[in-house]
């Protein structure tokens, strides 16, 4: 298959990038509030997927409790808003910091674990957070009912009430996220993550402080999930411990793995498959959840590397098969 038109696009990335951004900006205009909310939710999960991609994709660490940090961010924003009356936008930095801090505290002692052992510990942490929220820890999380009555965010006198405002709000943060991720991917740190993922011992021998870079992946990824949580709280205004349930973590994990581990476009496709399509299949009623199972089985048979694998992985494959002159 001739891929020349594709490579032409690759040479001028700004062309399709600005096209995509324009598409994302225009997308909600012809849609009704329901589809705007679906779009909002998709973008939010892309953000969550990208944050988890830092940990799972770049650094190659199994994190199956990511929803806990999402919930921590949402609860931080909600508690600051409800208890101290801080406007929601001002709680965003606190949400990021709290989630990142917990990411640091939790992962510092378990960083030497690998693969399935790490996965078990992260699952356990996710459950601990959920149960702590259910049990109304410190009397501020509202127990199983969660917290409600979170004030809608305001900016320059504009109240974020309509779904379309929230869509643009998450889109704004998503663009920042993607920009940051692209920079990170090609930074010294991004390359260090790659080496650690491929061969930790060799990376250490090369002079990379593996503990530090792995910790940084967790802290950054957790903080980012915290921001997504705060954005969620701003839109729904009611939060419950269900945010931290295991199924949420699994959805985030699948977004990263199905789309193609370590790949930003892969996360987009993963979020479309895991979040948008099941929502659009709502009229199928009870058969809706069957879609997820079927896709996963088909995916694992047809494309185990993901729908849009990381370009770096692809390039490596191409180079090994047909080296450039």
């Amino acid at each position: 298959m001739n891929l020349s038109w594709l490579s032409r696009f690759r040479e001028r990335p700004w062309l399709w990038q600005s096209g995509l951004i324009l598409f994302a900006i225009l997308l909600p205009l012809p849609l009704g509030d329901y589809y705007r909310t679906v779009a909002w939710r998709t973008v939010l999960y892309i953000m969550l997927g990208l944050s988890l991609n830092l940990i799972v994709g770049y650094a190659g660490l199994f994190q199956l409790g990511h929803a806990a940090f999402y919930a921590l961010g949402a609860y931080t924003a909600a508690i600051l808003n409800l208890q101290l009356g801080i406007p929601l936008f001002w709680t965003f930095p606190a949400s990021i910091l709290v989630a990142a801090l917990f990411g640091f505290l939790i992962t510092r002692p378990i960083l030497h674990l690998r693969g399935d052992y790490l996965a078990i510990v992260t699952i356990a942490f996710g459950e601990v957070v959920r149960l702590a929220l259910v049990n109304n820890i410190f009397g501020i999380t509202g127990g199983a009912n969660g917290l409600s009555g979170i004030a809608r965010p305001r900016l320059l006198g504009l109240e974020f009430r309509q779904p379309i405002y929230h869509y643009y709000l998450v889109l704004f943060f998503l663009l920042i996220t993607i920009f940051a991720m692209r920079r990170l991917e090609n930074s010294r740190l991004g390359r260090a993550w790659l080496y650690v993922r491929e061969d930790e011992t060799a990376a250490e021998a090369m002079g990379i402080n593996t503990t530090q870079v792995k910790l940084l992946a967790f802290v950054l990824g957790s903080g980012w999930a915290g921001l997504a949580g705060a954005l969620y709280a701003a839109r729904i205004t009611v939060i419950s411990p269900d945010l931290a349930r295991f199924m949420e973590s699994v959805v985030m994990f699948c977004i990263v793995v199905l789309g193609g581990t370590g790949s930003i476009p892969g996360v987009f496709i993963g979020a479309l498959g895991m979040v948008t399509l099941p929502e659009l299949f709502r009229p199928l009623k009870d058969w809706r959840d069957a879609w997820l199972g079927v896709t996963m089985v088909v995916m694992m048979i047809a494309r185990p590397e993901g729908l849009w694998p990381s370009r770096r992985v692809q390039l490596e494959l191409q180079e090994s098969e047909a080296p450039h002159g």
Binding site: G32, D33, Y34, T37, V38, R41, G146, P163, Y232, R235, I236, V238, I239, S240, D242, E279, R282, K285
Partner: peptide, 20 residues
């Protein structure tokens, strides 16, 4: 009939579906 699964996010979505 719309299913919200008892979850606030899905509740907001199905509420909008019913409005539509």
């Amino acid at each position: 009939v719309e299913d919200d699964a008892g979850d606030p996010t899905q509740s907001a979505l199905v509420a909008q579906r019913l409005v539509d």
